[in-house]
């Protein structure tokens, strides 16, 4: 029994991209001598994921997330570096390895659109050689949990996006994989559907101690599922650790929300304390630098008739955004 761990050591993927100048002459010239440019999609990243962990894999578009997932699932050859997934080298694409993993891409469908999902499931049963009894039990259980019922008997093209995604998830987990690569599994879904998919992933993870590497643009997904996050940017590892630490480390600011008792119509000049986000007669939201927070708090309490004051971290979306917007400084 192989464990479901993932090890990545100094992984690199470099694409050679043809480069040519505009114009017919350059086009003809490029037929003979093609100039290429190296693009480092993944540029030396390392991490280790233990069996049963759910890890959020974050980064802006083009950061190298999908390229990494593709290398981990054996679809792409790494340019260099070492990979081990569930005790196998992915790019060898051994049957035992492929039997152990699953890949779900929210943007693409693996189900055949012309036929009902339940027929596609039958095909997966044959391809993976799933024992009939286990297959039927698992399938019916998952169909029930996902509340798909008769939808699996309709051609997939007639399903809504959310219904389709639920059917995809069922199909991807029928062979009881130990390692799940989920690339934007909730993209474009409404909140209820997102929640259902999340709960499904969580339940599967707990029941089979499966390892999950998940990318998502929805921070709610990450917050609900992942204790740990790995952040990459420009193909490099930017952060690997607890979600709470990420906020701690990358948010330079705190949000202060204060409620005051009646000030007899006077409006104090709040700008002297920090950046004013909103100001109502009795309620003010301020943004201050993290290091100034204790001092500003003390001053506010001394100067004003404060009845309530909270100090918050900014929303995680903003933190992530600020990480990605920052110029490429962390080398």
């Amino acid at each position: 029994m192989s464990t479901n761990s993932i090890t990545v050591k100094d992984l690199r993927k470099t694409y050679k991209v043809p480069e040519r100048e505009a114009g017919l002459k350059a086009a003809i010239k490029s037929l003979v001598a093609r100039k290429t440019k190296d693009v480092h999609a993944v540029d030396g990243i390392s991490f280790q994921i233990e069996p049963g962990e759910i890890v959020g894999f974050l980064g802006p578009n083009g950061a190298g997330k999908t390229t990494t997932l593709k290398m981990l699932s054996g679809l792409l050859y790494p340019t260099s570096g070492e990979l081990s997934v569930a005790g196998h080298v992915p790019q060898k694409r051994e049957r035992e390895f492929l039997q152990q993993i699953t890949l779900v891409m929210g943007q693409r469908s693996q189900l055949n659109w012309d036929i009902p999902a339940i027929d596609s499931y039958d095909l997966y049963r044959a391809i993976y050689g799933i024992p009939q009894e286990q297959f039927i039990a698992d399938r019916d259980k998952m169909i029930e949990v996902m509340q798909l019922k008769d939808l699996v008997k309709k051609p997939v093209r007639n399903l809504s996006l959310g219904e389709r995604m639920k059917a995809e998830m069922v199909g991807a987990l029928l062979h009881q994989p130990g390692v799940l690569f989920l690339d934007e599994p909730t993209i474009g879904l409404d909140v209820t559907m997102q929640r259902r998919i999340r709960a499904f992933i969580q339940e599967y993870n707990q029941r089979y101690n499966a390892t999950v590497l998940l990318t998502s643009h929805y921070m709610a997904d990450v917050q609900a599922l992942c204790k740990r996050v790995i952040v990459i940017h420009h193909g490099k590892l930017l952060f690997d650790g607890d979600l709470t630490q990420l906020v701690e480390r990358f948010s330079a600011q705190k949000t202060l929300v204060l409620t005051m008792s009646d000030m007899n119509g006077k409006t104090p000049d709040m700008a002297q304390y920090g950046t004013v986000v909103t100001q109502e007669p009795n309620r003010v939201v301020l943004r201050v630098a993290k290091s100034d927070a204790p001092q500003v708090t003390a001053r506010l309490l001394a100067d004003l008739p404060v009845t309530d004051l909270t100090v918050d971290d900014p929303p995680i979306e903003e933190v992530i955004e600020s990480v990605f917007d920052a110029p490429e400084t962390s080398e």
């Binding site: 679809l75 699953t102 890949l103 693409r108």
Partner: peptide
């Protein structure tokens, strides 16, 4: 063209057969 071949390639069966 649509990148769906990835799913075929992650199946434990010969892709040409599939």
């Amino acid at each position: 063209r649509e990148g769906r071949l990835d799913f075929t390639l992650t199946k434990p069966e010969d892709a040409q057969v599939l």
